[in-house]
């Protein structure tokens, strides 16, 4: 299989879909977070591929750098929230987070 734009886009699509399914099915908060990382990575693959195979040039790579940095920030905050949640409820099952339900 020769590297090509459509090949990269296919990988991006697979990663994105797996991430969405993972986010939808997990009840573990950290599992949901891993799904988010997969989704962002799918987007990154597309951006890098566009930077390589179209005239987008360096822009695609810079966008993917920003995505990686923001994903790291998001993971740090989400984990802080998960730890806080665990401290209060002794579980990280997202279905148990229903204190605010009427």
């Amino acid at each position: 299989m020769q590297p090509s734009l459509s090949g990269y886009l296919l990988i991006g699509a697979v990663l994105f879909t797996c991430g969405v399914v993972c986010m939808a099915t997990r009840r573990n908060a950290i599992g949901v977070l891993m799904g988010v990382e997969l989704v962002l990575n799918g987007a990154n693959v597309n951006l890098v591929a566009f930077s390589r195979y179209t005239t987008l040039g360096i822009d695609g790579q810079i966008y993917s750098l920003f995505i990686i940095v923001l994903a790291a920030a998001e993971a740090a905050l989400a984990l802080a929230i998960a730890l806080n949640f665990y401290n209060n409820h002794l579980t990280i099952d997202v279905d148990k987070a229903s204190s605010l339900k009427g």
């Binding site: 890098v48 930077s51 790579q61």
Partner: peptide
């Protein structure tokens, strides 16, 4: 690895 193949070493 795919990024390295797409000539995006830094990314």
């Amino acid at each position: 690895g795919l990024f390295f193949l797409a000539d995006a070493d830094f990314v």
